[in-house]
Amino acid sequence: MRTLSLLICLLAIALPAHAEKGHVHGEGSLEVVIDKGRLSLRLELPLDVAVGFERAPRSDKERAALAAAQQALADPALFVPTPAAGCKPEPVRIAMPTFDGNKPAAHADIDAAYEFSCATPAALKSVETTIFKSFKRLYRLDARRAGPTGQGAGRLTPKNPVLAW
């Protein structure tokens, strides 16, 4: 029992509370749910990753950058489920951060929700993303998944942009 406690202590040191991911620049998070014929993805991207600043836009250039990021995220082809599953994308919902006047903002995230309806959900085995091509400042996407085959976690990177299960 003592050895076990030691192991637990080591783990407790090695692993801080993971449940609520903080805001880390360069890292986004992705929640993946497969329920019956629906594949739902929820993406949270630090604004910094998308446009390079985390405050209200101050120039036309920055406003254009925000609009470009929103447009890039609105493309459902950003995520590619297993082709064999026959998933059809539905309109993307995007929540851009709102800026409160001239108050210096703390952190800001963009939330985007991607929904697919899949003809053969049993064939759904992976989701690939092209998001790293659109957002060069993004170096990691921490993915968490819940589906009929169980739950899991994965790490998507520019070199490994596939979440498979």
Partner: peptide
Amino acid sequence: LLAVLPGVALDELWQA
């Protein structure tokens, strides 16, 4: 309170 998805927590443990 803290809620974790057991499968996710285990995967994160394996990652670590």
